[in-house]
Design a protein around this nucleic acid. Structure first.
Length: 765
DNA sequence: AGCACA
């Protein structure tokens, strides 16, 4: 037997210890090592000739000592296997505690023993202990676990652990002793100048997590419970940039990204970097990448003129440069305009750019094709002209939410003969400005006055007569226009492929007939919130290339109109019937028969639509997006049919579909493996349905507000099971009911929680 | 190999 004939004792006796280790360190290390078995009352080690290489560890319980003897037998400690037995006698500190300690009697006894020892020097026998394996992490020091949980909440798992609150005398060997008990241990790193902290590296983050769990709150001294978190990775020097897209999301704390060894950095890789490293990234080294063509610095608020100048100086191949919302001024513009290949320049929201600065520009950029100066308020057409001076290839200009569209502005653009596309969204528009645009010598292909105020029937009618080649026109929310505009648009611009006129609510229903009569090349039509009726739809159905049709809040349309669309628009991919209350199952059925390629449909808030609609929609095998929010008469039966028929389904909104329950979730779990996003708020789905849904591998985004059948535990289980989840919208009342540590764990795996506290809205219907 | 409490 390992312990010889010595009876169990709450003190263990250890021999074969490395004699080179200093006494204090030895004691601390032993304390660290054996604390996993229970509370330690004392560690005794002496360096006298007779007692060196041995030690006693006193536990508060015999069972702890027994476990220690068995499990740590042969454990390699400072390179030597420990030999462990029970101590032969009671330790003084125990005797003292029990009130049986008599120092005088002990002294006497000691002297006697010393004399006897001489006689029996050779008789002393110790049975050699057998070899054992080091302990696995079964049963750690639970009573010591009281780590600083909050510190680890958002740090993602890392194979490196960060240890804080260590007593200053801690050595790396002590920590090694402590951490090497756990599989995968690699090394301990301490920084001399920074006592109290250490980094402990494991093979992988599963193994580091095990060690963290076991040693969280471990006390090297009673005052120092150690706080273990995953180390934050701050610098990264990848060898192959093409793998960044898969790995970078795990390191949101990266501050410095060194891409100098990556041979071929491409623009798309930097896009990946910017998406993954949102807040922390301060520095990126691209010194091998002189050939970058596309650089987007949007919202990089700390980059100013100097940075942009350096960039322009170094990366001469830049084709596309986005400097949106940077605090730059005219100072960096000369170096930008000298870029010989620059084609796209985005200066959105650059408020530091004004007429004074622009007026000093000497350069011109011949290669420039597109310029976006949306949300720039501090310049006029004069400054704009200085900027695009000599840009003879300019094709697209976006001046949304900027200075008023005046005749002066329009005239200053008069001679840019290559201009194809101009966007003035959200600008104040003067009639004289619109008329001046109408006088440009070359026809535009694309024009947007979305949400502009000041667009009148007269001026718009005049404008379109001068731009007969127009393909795309956006007059969303130009609320003053009436019949005449539509008449002029359709008669002048016969090649129109896209017209957006949401909320042009003064246009009479007779006007919509003109589209089918005159603009049969139409592919995209947005007549949301207008007076269009079935006659209009009948006419529009002559546009056989129609691919997107938006009829939300169109109260004058019925199934009859949709039947026309279904009978002739076989290319339809997107149909929006949001709150178009005249539509029933019959209309939907007609569309699904005639438009089998339908990919996106919205029938939200329609109280006449039932499962029959969903069953007919299940024929559309390419359906990707289905919005049936607020349809009280659809149930699990219909949605199950969708799940079976529409395997491409990616986005599903079934908010307030009170009759949809767990059964539909089971069908989705079984068939809809492409589902990425779902809104389940107010449905009759419970823990069971949500957990079933968790098996959909691609699920990234779920909204679960006001689900009566959802419990905190059910939610927690489902969230744990959703491995790829990145965004969860939940009611704030759940927040205190889910363990913080669990939320931290899920967040650490890349999920963002959005807590909403909107009150429960009772059923509208 | 060695069983103490500086």
């Amino acid at each position: 037997m390992l312990t010889g004939d010595i009876p169990p004792n709450q003190t263990i006796y250890i021999k074969n210890l490395n004699e080179k280790v200093k006494k204090e360190e030895l004691k601390r290390s032993l304390y660290c090592l054996f604390s996993q078995y229970g509370r330690i009352l004392d560690v005794v080690a002496l360096k006298t000739a007779r007692l060196r290489g041995q030690a006693w560890v006193v536990f508060s319980e015999v069972t702890a000592a027994s476990n220690a003897v068995r499990q740590m037998q042969g454990f390699p400690f400072y390179d030597k296997p420990m030999r462990i037995q029970y101590a032969k006698t009671k330790s003084d500190c125990i005797a003292e505690a029990e009130g049986v300690y008599d120092p005088n009697a002990k002294k006497k006894k000691k002297q006697e023993e010393k004399a006897e020892r001489k006689k029996r020097a050779e008789e002393a026998q110790q049975s050699a202990p057998a070899n054992g394996k080091p302990a696995e992490s079964n049963g750690g020091p639970t009573s010591f676990r009281q780590g600083n949980q909050s510190a680890q909440e958002t740090v993602p798992p890392n194979n490196i652990l960060f240890i804080q609150n260590l007593p200053h005398e801690t050595t790396s060997m002590m920590l090694q002793v402590l951490f090497q008990q756990y599989p995968g241990f690699r090394e301990v790193r301490m920084i001399e100048a920074k006592p109290g902290i250490a980094f402990v590296e494991f093979e992988d983050d599963v193994q580091s997590s095990m060690a963290m769990q076991a040693l969280q709150g471990f006390k090297i001294t009673p005052q120092n419970p150690m706080a273990i978190t995953y180390a934050k990775k701050k610098t990264l020097k990848p060898l192959r940039a093409e793998l960044l897209s898969r790995t970078l999301h795990r390191y949101p704390h990266i501050e410095y990204l060194d891409l100098t060894v990556c041979p071929r950095i491409e623009d798309s890789m930097l896009n990946v970097v910017s998406l993954a490293c949102k807040d922390a990234l301060c520095s990126i080294n691209l010194s091998r990448s002189r050939k970058l063509r596309l650089i987007c610095l949007k919202w990089c608020l700390k980059i100013s003129d100097l940075g942009v100048q350096l960039l322009a100086l170094k990366c001469k191949e830049i084709r596309s440069l986005d400097l949106s919302y940077l605090q730059i001024t005219e100072k960096c513009l000369p170096s930008i305009l000298q870029l010989q290949h620059l084609e796209d320049l985005v200066l959105e929201g650059c408020l530091g750019i004004n007429d004074d600065g622009l007026s000093t520009l000497q350069q011109s950029c011949k290669s420039l094709k597109t310029l976006n100066m949306s949300n720039c308020h501090n310049h006029s057409h004069v400054g704009l002209l200085s900027l695009i001076n000599g840009a003879e290839n300019l094709r697209e200009l976006t001046l949304a939410y900027g200075p008023s569209v005046t005749a002066d502005l329009a005239k200053s653009l008069h001679n840019f003969s290559g201009l194809h596309s101009v966007k003035f969204d959200g600008c104040l528009v003067k009639c004289s400005g619109i008329r001046a645009i109408g006088n440009w010598p070359n026809s535009l292909k694309e024009l947007s006055f979305s949400k502009c105020s000041g667009v009148t029937d007269d001026s718009l009618s005049f404008l379109v007569q001068g731009h007969k080649e127009l393909r795309k026109l956006d007059i969303t929310c130009c609320r003053m226009i009436m019949y005449d505009s539509v008449d002029s648009i359709t008669s002048s611009c016969c090649s129109l492929t896209s017209l957006r006129m949401e909320s042009c609510s003064l246009v009479p229903k007779e006007a919509f007939v003109l589209f089918g009569q005159r603009c049969q090349l139409m592919e995209e039509l947005d007549v949301t919130d207008t007076k269009i009726d079935d006659e209009g739809l009948k006419s529009i159905s002559r546009c056989s290339k129609l691919s997107s049709l938006k009829l939300g809040i169109c109260m004058n349309i019925t199934d009859n109109g949709l039947k026309h669309i279904g009978s002739r628009c076989s290319k339809l991919k997107e149909l929006d019937l949001y709150r178009s209350l005249g539509i029933t199952d019959e209309g939907i059925a007609a569309v699904t028969f005639g438009c089998p390629d339908l990919e996106v449909i919205n029938i939200a808030y329609n109280d006449k639509v039932t499962d029959a609609s969903l069953i007919s929609l299940s024929r559309c095998s390419r359906l990707r997006v289905l919005e049936i929010r607020g349809c009280p008469h659809v149930s699990s039966k219909g949605l199950s049919a969708i799940a079976v028929g529409c395997r491409q389904l990616m986005v599903l909104d079934i908010k307030k579909c009170f009759n949809i329950n767990d059964n539909a979730m089971l069908s989705l779990a079984q068939f809809s493996q492409n589902l990425k996003q779902i809104n389940l708020s107010y449905c009759s789905v419970t823990d069971v349905g949500l957990l079933a849904l968790a098996s959909v591998n691609r699920l990234q985004n779920i909204t679960v507000l006001h689900l009566g059948g959802l419990t905190p535990n059910g939610l927690a289980a489902a969230l744990l099971a959703c491995r790829g989840i990145t965004k969860v919208k939940l009611h704030a009342s759940f927040k205190p009911l889910i363990p913080k540590s669990l939320l931290g764990y899920i967040e650490a795996h890349g999920c963002v929680f959005h807590w909403r506290d909107k009150a429960f809205q009772p059923c509208r219907f």
